[in-house]
Design a protein around this nucleic acid. Structure first.
Lengths: 220, 220
DNA sequence: TCAGCCCCCAGTGTATACAAAACTAATAAC
DNA sequence: GTTATTAGTTTTGTATACACTGGGGGCTGA
């Protein structure tokens, strides 16, 4: 593995999981030393992350990890909504029915996973990832897939802010199941509508979680 | 201006306008010398272009300019369609009516521009760019704007392949005018529908142009 | 003649040294 | 007291040298 890729992956993880909090300044020498690479590959990683929109040049402080405000969440969903909708439509048109039928079955048992403690939650997230992957494969449009990947990067960051509310997760699982079943039924319109519903609920939840988190932070 | 930015811009232009044709291998030393920068900033530029999807790592030949096949055009429109639709919707919700009313007026006179030779065509393209800019400003969502920008990069490449058919340009101007008027009327649904129509026609035209071009190339 | 292997070299990947720019802070002038 | 200017220091940006890898071509042996 190239040093620049290694640096990129490491920084990406640190930013997504919050180790490098929003606003953190990233000095080149400091990060290079921390990650055990020289400045050259590190700079390449940084420039990638800038393209991803995860870091930005802030006047006076060099590169800093971008912030995630409530407005950002809304704005992100203004991109997410049309992208996922299109993805669902295309998957309904072209997806491998076998694959999605299998996923549907697993989502029917999502409740059990969600109630299964940390390991279960992890398994549930894993299931979601497999769904994303299946959709990406079904789409076949490299451009759309690439846009989705970039989107999911930012979503992962937001998700970390949301508290894990089992009630919400169960509801989300049901919403997702409707989408998958629409795909299995080769019903693009239904898949699109179900996606819109899911997006709406997901946004509402993300905002609530972020708001309550803001309050928590203010109090503590 | 930084050398890496300069290299990026130069390569970007060369790729979009076809100077660097699809499939061209980009050797680092060669390009660095051509552009008058050292390998370090050049590599940064290359890694950006790779993120943009304009160049790719092809096994055995290093980095090459990505190809634009008929399938690619279809796939690109599978991303373009939802993005532009969303953009139009948001612009209809939030856009500065003054700005779009002004643009509408100018688009009403598009015929004159299109018939006005190369200078007129250029002015018409310029007008389109101003529309794109106005929409981007109206949107305010950084994520969507960024996705649109990336999209327009690839579109510019395709547009180069299309022959400039005045008939098609006039039709496109009318389609666009409908979208703008919907924005002025604060009618998101109409803006979305008009955009879908425009996308459909635009895709059809792009495919036809690319197909006839393919034939031309085979014959010559 | 053809297959397989090895060597060489072109080209990429990384480290480091050097140049330039920008921020900080201190001092001086108004 | 405030502001502007400048020197110093830190940090970024660029060039270059070195290391490493992968591929092509040629040579040898069957």
């Amino acid at each position: 593995m190239r040093a620049s890729d290694k640096a990129y992956q490491a920084l990406l993880e640190d930013i997504v999981d919050g180790t490098l909090a929003p606003g953190t300044a990233l000095a080149e020498v400091e990060q290079a030393e921390r990650l055990g690479v020289s400045r050259t590959p590190l700079r390449e990683a940084l420039s990638q992350l800038r393209k991803d929109g995860l870091i930005q040049q802030t006047r006076g402080r060099g590169l800093t990890v971008t912030d995630v405000s409530l407005d950002d969440i809304v704005e992100l969903y203004e991109l997410r909504q049309p992208l996922e909708q299109q993805a669902a439509k295309l998957a309904a048109n072209r997806g491998d029915i076998q694959v999605f039928a299998q996923l549907a079955e697993e989502f029917q048992n999502a409740d059990r996973l969600i109630e299964g403690g940390d390991a279960g939650i992890k398994a549930y997230y894993n299931l979601n990832e497999r769904l994303d992957k299946a959709i990406e494969e079904a789409i076949s449009s490299a451009y759309l897939v690439s846009a989705l990947k970039s989107l999911h990067l930012h979503l992962a960051r937001i998700r970390r802010l949301s508290r894990r509310d089992p009630q919400r997760l169960k509801a989300a699982a049901i919403e997702t199941l409707v989408i998958i079943e629409a795909i299995v039924d080769r019903n693009p319109e239904l898949a699109a509508s179900a996606t819109q519903v899911h997006m709406q609920q997901s946004l509402r939840n993300a905002l609530e979680a972020a708001r309550s988190r803001e309050v928590t932070q203010r109090v503590s």
